[in-house]
Design a protein around this nucleic acid. Structure first.
Length: 889
RNA sequence: GGGCGGCUAGCUCAGUGGGAGAGCGCCACAUUGACACUGUGGAGGUCAGAAGUUCAAUCCUUCUGCCGCCCACCA
């Protein structure tokens, strides 16, 4: 007899998980070289922010990536998962500025150089924190290929894309209305602006007519911007105002005349049907202004204070004159914060009698997702990407079926975004990021070049000067993330990695960044990397709390996987619990910790099944092989059949992104089929010859199927069993060709399970003590299967014998059991059964009496119904007899 | 305003055009060759409401209600 391993009684994830992870790292199991001989499988990890901490959202998007990478590696594919981090421009800069503030310093006082030095130092110190969390969660990306969006190679890719787009006319500089974040002191993309509900007022203000008439009453939520009004707009078909169109009205206080114009964008039903037009501070007004060729003075500055009028560079002196003249009058507001100015202006208008009405109004206002500051739309000279020409091919591709979205409906979200796309403001007034590769001559001539040397050369040749200053702005963080799937593979170099792993097989992300990020990767990938960056986009659900609220730090309902879940349930329990709740068509995941608890107990359960197998008096076989077929018992054949079914289901589920279904199938088989029934049945004497090999074989196969979801406990079990190879990570996926199936025998054993359940029920109802042996007869037709009698005897703690004839029911024979005490309970039970059966019989009879059913239903359905009715009637007769017998005692 | 998802047992969720399911919680029993992070049994639901299609609807269609998400220039 060989020495048996001493296995601890309880499975301890806290001890096992870090130990195994170290071993995997040491063995380099996560690293792959591009190998054209094998099918590629690659996932680009969506780079978390360098400031990021692991949160539950990572659980639902990153765990599927780990699962798929591990699964495809086991399938023998050239599977790799490339990790990295995003410099997260504004998000990081905000953190850094806050840090500085604690020391009483400011960004500007420090200066660009010093600030960036600090930023890099900060990144060195804290930037890797999230990786440690990922490791603790068991994620196995190829750490050797880790990338950072500010790496020199990735920065070079960014510069190349910028320069090429500029030379192709797709990047331009212009004065446009942008989203200004006065706290972050930078522009934001539309995607970084959120709507927030606020209670405010709607103010009706009268602008009198220049010729002395009544004029017009406009409704606004932003009275302070009236200083920059250039017109009042009404709907062209609005009878109320038709006479005023083309005439002038006068702005109160500042006494400046502006025209009344007609524009279709005005809604007659809203407010008074007349709207003030402030092109420099409102998107709709800007568009009206463009249509009518209106001047566009700005009166709110970058600090969100009222300023003297500021003009875009192309405004003519004639247009400026009246507004420049009003500056003297509006000096009383100049320098006031926009909200303070609003109060003052409303007061002044009221005093003047120009305020017609003030009514409470509930509305949404744009807020910075970075600083929470109220966004100020204002005109600014910025850099933009022309999106139409990039979006068009992406839309064509989508209509041709690529990329494929899972679930499909998210494709419509994506397409809708592309259809309504607007030019993308890419310049940011911050320092942490990719600096624009743009220089200016003293005459403001623009030079776009790959580097300073090239810029100088070009400038000398073209403008005959050496004097250059570089644009201080940096790029929107999504500019570099848009290149991610190919920049991390070495693009623009034609590397073997790019050759083999582009396009990626799948991109996994959550729906809130489908348009923000996915569409940009597609557009830039198609233009620069020669095609679609990925074949499939899998969209994971967003995580909510059990009350259906989005998890957030401010709500205090956020669950931190590193402190709340992993210590309690282990990485395996955390992963399994999260995945179990993922359902393909569902767009939200109301996280319920009980699934993690269940998963943890499942791991313990499996561990104990392993301990049982190892502690058997028979030795486990040396290799992972099954006994000869003719030796297998009915229970063996059944569990092997169920095992194969399970592996098939799990394979299908992984292939179809059905992670919840995969977890269901694993749990169902592992716990409720294998542990509860097979392990119990294996304790019967008739099972001894084969059980050690079968237990070992089933466990070995099962843990491989489960490994992608719960990598640690499966490794620990696999290592203890007979196995080939160094680690389960590189073991092969269960091969269906090696998994026998016995459908007939499995069906027979399933009836055994049913009978045992019925008899346990009877035992419980009869109040038979566990120490009292039940006496059971089973039909001799079941007996030829070796081990059935013993198995039932063991499962039921009963003496089992067989009888000839009979109709296969066990219940009628159980009446012979001695020592039944509680006839009242029994009568109650049978009465209830009787009622249930009678109603079933009635329902079935009615159905079969229905001519339509007989004529139109599928024949096998009718047959099935007839058979059911037969069963019900037999059972009914039996229960009646039993009830009579019990009642007569 | 447009689009989308959900509504099934106390809680969180599976599920199917033809006899309502799981886990947790609850009740009862149990220390049987691994496991109390256990086992066995049980109670508990007019499958949101209405109409329609169908021989048959929890499932398909339409409408309504409620919860939630996304998009949009309603000042």
């Amino acid at each position: 007899m060989t020495a048996r391993p001493e296995l601890p009684k309880t499975y301890d994830p806290a001890e096992v998980e870090p130990r195994l992870y170290e071993r995997w790292l040491a063995a380099g199991v996560f690293h792959e070289e591009a190998d054209p001989a094998r099918p590629p499988f690659i996932i680009s990890m969506p780079p978390p922010n360098v400031t990021g901490r692991a949160h539950l959202g990572h659980g639902s998007t990153y765990t599927p990536m780990d699962v798929l990478t591990r699964y495809h590696r086991m399938l023998g594919e050239n599977a790799d998962w490339i990790p990295g981090q995003d410099h997260a421009a504004i998000a990081t800069e905000t953190v850094l500025v806050r840090e500085l503030a604690k020391e009483g310093k400011t960004r500007n006082a420090l200066g660009r150089e010093k600030f960036l030095e600090r930023a890099w130092a900060w990144r060195e110190q804290y930037g890797g924190e999230i990786n440690e969390s990922f490791k603790r969660l068991g994620f196995g990306p190829d750490w050797d290929r880790e990338r950072f969006t500010l790496d020199p190679a990735l920065s070079a890719a960014v510069v190349k894309v910028f320069v090429d787009l500029y030379h192709d006319g797709l990047i331009y500089r212009g004065t446009r209305l942008v989203n200004w974040d006065p706290v972050a002191q930078s522009t934001l993309s539309d995607a970084e602006v959120e709507d927030e509900e606020r209670d405010t007022f709607l103010w009706d203000i009268r602008y009198r007519a220049e010729d002395g008439g009544e004029g017009i009453v406009i409704a606004t939520t932003r009275p302070e911007t009236y200083l920059a009004d250039v017109a009042v707009a009404v709907h062209p078909e609005d009878e109320r105002y038709r006479a005023l169109i083309g005439k002038n009205v006068v702005l109160p206080i500042v006494d400046r005349a502006i025209p009344v114009i007609a524009d279709e964008a005005v809604m007659r039903e809203f407010g008074t049907g007349a709207v003030k037009v402030t092109p420099a501070h409102d998107q709709t007004d800007y568009e009206i202004g463009e249509r009518h060729g209106l001047p566009m003075p700005t009166v709110i500055d970058f600090d969100a204070r009222i300023s003297a009028p500021l003009w875009r560079y192309d405004e003519t002196p004639e247009r400026r004159a009246p507004i420049d003249a009003q500056a003297l009058t509006m000096a009383r507001y100049t320098g006031l914060d926009r909200f303070e100015a609003r109060k003052r202006i409303v007061e002044d208008l009221r005093a003047l009698g120009a305020l017609v009405e003030e009514r409470p109004y509930h509305t949404t206002i744009p807020v910075s997702s970075r600083s929470q500051a109220v966004i100020e739309p204002l005109l600014s000279l910025q850099w933009f990407v022309k999106m139409q020409p990039l979006a068009a091919p992406a839309l064509d591709a989508y209509r041709g079926g690529v990329p494929r979205f899972v679930p499909e409906r998210f494709g419509r979200t994506y397409a809708a975004g592309l259809e309504n796309i607007r030019d993308w403001n890419i310049s940011r007034q911050i320092w942490w990021g990719h600096r624009l590769p743009v220089w200016y001559t003293p005459n403001d001539e623009v030079v776009v070049a790959h580097d300073e040397d090239e810029a100088k050369r070009v400038t000398r040749e073209r403008f005959g000067t050496d004097e250059l200053r570089r644009d201080p702005d940096t790029l929107d963080t999504w500019f570099s993330s848009g290149l991610w799937p190919f920049s991390i593979l070495g693009w623009p170099e034609q590397t073997p990695e790019l050759e083999h792993w582009y396009p990626n097989q799948v991109m996994i992300t959550s729906r809130d960044i489908i348009f923000l990020w996915v569409s940009r990767m597609v557009m830039l990938g198609m233009r620069f990397a020669g095609g679609m960056p990925f074949e499939t986009v899998f969209v994971t659900p967003l995580v909510f709390d059990m009350r259906g609220r989005k998890m957030s730090k401010s709500l205090g309902n956020a669950i931190d996987p590193m402190t709340d879940l992993v210590p309690r349930y282990g990485a395996d329990g955390t992963r399994f619990g999260i995945l179990r709740q993922m359902r393909l068509e569902s767009q939200e995941l109301r996280f319920d910790e009980r699934y993690c608890d269940e998963a943890k107990r499942f791991a313990t359960k499996l561990w104990n099944a392993l301990r049982y197998a190892v502690a058997l008096p028979e030795d486990l076989p040396r290799a992972n092989v099954l006994p000869a077929r003719e030796k297998l018992t009915l229970a063996d054949k059944w569990i092997l059949t169920e095992l194969r079914t399970c592996v098939e289901a799990v394979t299908r589920a992984y292939d179809g992104f059905e992670f919840g279904v995969a977890a269901d199938a694993l749990l169902e088989f592992g716990w409720y089929t294998f542990c509860d029934w097979y392990v119990e049945a294996s304790k019967a004497p008739g099972q001894q010859e084969t059980r050690a090999a079968v237990l070992s074989f089933v466990l070995n196969t099962f843990v491989r199927a489960m490994h992608p979801i719960a990598p640690f406990v499966t490794e620990e079990i696999w290592q203890t069993l007979p196995h080939d190879g160094a680690t389960i990570v590189t073991a092969s996926w269960p091969d269906l060709a090696e998994l026998p199936t016995f459908p007939g025998d499995a069906a027979t054993f399933r009836t055994v399970v049913e009978k045992v359940e019925q008899l346990r029920n009877v035992r419980s109802e009869w109040g038979i003590q566990p120490k009292d042996r039940m006496q059971v007869e089973i039909p001799a037709t079941l007996e030829p299967e070796r081990g059935v009698v013993e198995a039932i005897a063991t499962l039921l703690r009963a003496d089992v014998s067989t009888y000839e004839g009979g109709n296969g029911s066990l219940r009628d024979r159980i009446l012979g059991v001695r020592g039944v005490a509680d006839t009242a309970k029994l009568r109650e039970r049978y009465t209830r059964d009787l009622a249930k059966l009678e109603s079933e019989v009635a329902r079935s009879e009615k159905k079969l009496a229905n001519e339509g059913f007989i004529a139109k239903a599928a024949p096998d359905v009718v047959e099935g119904e007839r058979a059911k009715l037969e069963d019900y009637r037999r059972e009914l007769a039996r229960v009646r007899a039993a009830l009579a017998e019990v009642s007569s005692r």
